[in-house]
Amino acid sequence: MGMPISHIMTSGMSGIRAAGDLVARMELAKGMRIGEAKDYVAKKLDVTTDDLSDEYVMRELREELGIGVITSVAGAPKGIAAKMNIEKLLDLKINSCEKFRGQLK
């Protein structure tokens, strides 16, 4: 357990504490290199690339955009709902959201 947490603390982007999940998603979805992925997400969020790892900037912005926050906020979008907002924000389709929509009558 200590090793992955050491990597997260040393080099990681802090996931939904900041914008690590969004940058990772662009690398995984589009094969973007790190610089391109950061530029893409920063442009969509209207922040600088340094802000993507800044919890101070991202905490409020994530709640405002409804894309999930690290603390449990009652009534705020979580799980699929947050990912549906991420789809719109990053202009891509997410498989679990597609499957969820496909199950609605």
């Binding site: 357990m1 992955p4 050491s6 990597h7 997260i8 603390m9 040393t10 080099s11 990681g12 982007m13 802090s14 690590g20 940058v23 990772a24 690398e27 790190i34 690339t49 340094d50 993507l52 790892s53």
Partner: peptide, 22 residues
């Protein structure tokens, strides 16, 4: 004891094993 990357140079971390660590 612990060092870190320069601010602004952070990168995403992916995992193997994942949940099974717990």
């Amino acid at each position: 004891r612990m060092v870190g990357v320069e601010q602004g140079k952070e990168v995403p971390v992916t995992h193997d094993i994942g949940t099974i660590r717990i």
